[in-house]
Design a protein around this nucleic acid. Structure first.
Lengths: 350, 350
DNA sequence: TTGTATGCGTTATCAC
DNA sequence: GTGATAACGCATACAA
């Protein structure tokens, strides 16, 4: 008579008690059911080797029966490890971050970590606030395109494992793209198309990435004896790109390299609104290859890198999950490459 | 002599001790510095009213001095509340979710909650896994576009506060768009342009939103005596839209309403590749007004809703932060509206 | 108003 | 290999 057996089943009684107190099963419940000490349960579940096969099996069966899950808070309180990672972004609606978030989230989940995300809205104040809020709950932090001062960043790195994405600060680990590779290809591309005068449309002046890209463009342009000027700072948005058109035209440059695709797209829109044909009258290129950049007309030439990989590396390095061999690979700069599309073409004859 | 004073400062000694043990300040440290009992510290920091102004000030000063932050894990262990909320998404790289994530994140942060995000990659298995992983750590869950069975969803709702976005299940709270409004406008728009035969390009057959949109399109088409057929299921992606072109053409319909903008964009791309001019030969519309839909050529006509507001409402309702008045507003359907752009035009003369 | 004592669920340090 | 017990940092019932 199976229901009689069920009534006698000690597991049922324990489950009822658990339900009554409105909570989840604990290692004490398992210990009781398995007839062992709570500490044995903890070991059986946590340290595979250090327990006899027989008791381990008993414990696992009991845990299964009671639908046990460890309480992450209790574990964290004892161990000091929360198994959570923080990711701080400037602007979560910027398409550039999508891939990065996914890469980071998957790498974290794979390692049994949970990713918590905070957005600073491009404001240093919000960023500091978000970091403070996250700090006590996470084992480490990924800061993407941070606006923090280098000093504050070092201080933070001293308190908590930290990885910077797209920003370098002395003594702090970071995941950086090998911009030189993509920029070299881009300037070769433009030079081959006959351009002799180029504008770099800068982002915000707090943006490390913008400064870095400009430095690389400058160096590459010098090598090829191309004229190049920096115009900025600008908002790193479509609006920022639109607003720059007049200054771009005034420069009489035949090609524009925008700090990012958003700005490039804005510039192209504004150009179209003014009857300027791209690429016949003006070539435009960006950075990041965001969603949408190949959908627009003409599709945008851009310097791409694998941002999913950036997110993945960031959390892997945070977790120190590098086997010796992997450490090197994760330390290396992220490859970048040119995606030449329709927004760049032969320089107008001038 | 200020450094002499510093040496004598009891706070310095405590700070040194904290640093030595490599951790953060606790209420015990504060209690010691302020000369009160730890429980008094806990109350002073947590329950504003229940303590004398004088001691409260002392405690706050000491907390400030020692740079104290409560340990969220310790608090959670005691109270059973983690102050964390989970957000489970099908596809984090789908532009449709960005606004929702931002809305949810801000509403959560505003209420002192931390948002943790998990992605199910459009897979029911991953979704279940992500939910199980998040469940013990969060006070509530927002499920966006879930693939879960209605039964499993109800069961989950019984275990943990739950809000569904863009999906309805009996007895489970949800945030839903008022699709009828936008669809009505869309079909009026198409009818006014002379279209008599319309295709609805469905999403996956597990998608509640797709079914809902189709039902609404069907009803509105019937009212206007327009011919309408559903073609699908399809992947809710650009690729899914591309793959559908042949079947769309075979239908001889003059207008297509895609389940979402991604599919609409894919369809338009494939049409362009086959020399089909939009909107002259075929009108195309989508749902969601994602980033990029106004950047493409021609810009996409679409039924929009405020997804940031959806995210915001979802967490607010999760937190039951509804003042009586607000509850009504948050309970109401989310407005939707038509954004008529260049991808829809007069029906070709047939 | 404030101090005392206890418990939250787990891991870790001892014993045995 | 396993059991007993303390400790993590905080909140709270109870005493004073």
């Amino acid at each position: 008579m199976s229901f009689q057996a069920t009534e006698d089943d000690p597991a049922e009684a324990i489950l009822a008690r658990i339900h009554a107190r409105g909570g989840a099963a604990t290692i004490y419940d398992i210990a009781e059911l398995a007839g062992v000490n709570p500490s044995t349960v903890s070991r059986a579940l946590g340290k595979p080797g250090r327990i006899s096969a027989a008791t381990a099996a008993k414990v696992r069966a009991a845990a299964e029966r009671l639908d046990f899950r460890v309480n992450p808070m209790a574990r964290a309180l004892q161990t000091g490890k929360t198994n959570m990672l923080g990711l701080v972004l400037a602007d979560i609606t910027n398409p550039v971050v999508f891939g990065m978030v996914r890469g980071a989230e998957h790498a974290a989940a794979e390692a049994g970590y949970t990713l918590v995300i905070a957005e600073s809205q491009e404001s240093g104040e919000n960023e500091a606030e978000a970091i403070e809020r996250l700090l006590p709950s996470v084992d480490g932090l990924v800061l993407a395109a941070t606006r923090m001062q280098a000093g504050a960043t070092s201080d933070l790195a001293a308190r908590k494992p930290l990885i910077l994405v797209n920003r370098a600060v002395d003594g702090v680990a970071s995941v950086l793209p090998d911009i030189a590779a993509g920029v070299t290809q881009l300037l070769d591309h433009l030079a081959a198309l006959g351009h002799r005068s180029v504008v770099f449309l800068a982002g915000p002046d707090t943006s490390w990435a913008s400064a870095r890209r400009w430095a690389e463009v400058l160096a590459a342009a010098e090598q090829r004896d191309l004229a190049v000027v920096e115009i900025g700072p600008n908002q790193p948005t479509i609006e920022g790109g639109r607003d720059a058109l007049r200054r771009v035209q005034a420069s009489h440059a035949t090609a524009v390299i925008a700090y990012n695709d958003l700005m490039a797209i804005g510039l192209m829109q504004e150009a179209a609104a003014h009857g300027i044909h791209i690429p016949d009258q003006l070539s435009v290129a960006g950075f990041d290859d965001i969603f949408g950049s190949e959908l627009i007309t003409p599709p945008l030439t851009t310097v791409a890198s694998d941002l999913g990989e950036a997110g993945r590396r960031a959390v892997r390095r945070l977790l120190g999950a590098d086997g010796e061999g992997e450490a090197d690979a994760d330390d290396a700069l992220l490859p970048t490459w040119l995606i030449a599309r329709g927004s760049t073409g032969p320089a107008p004859r001038g």
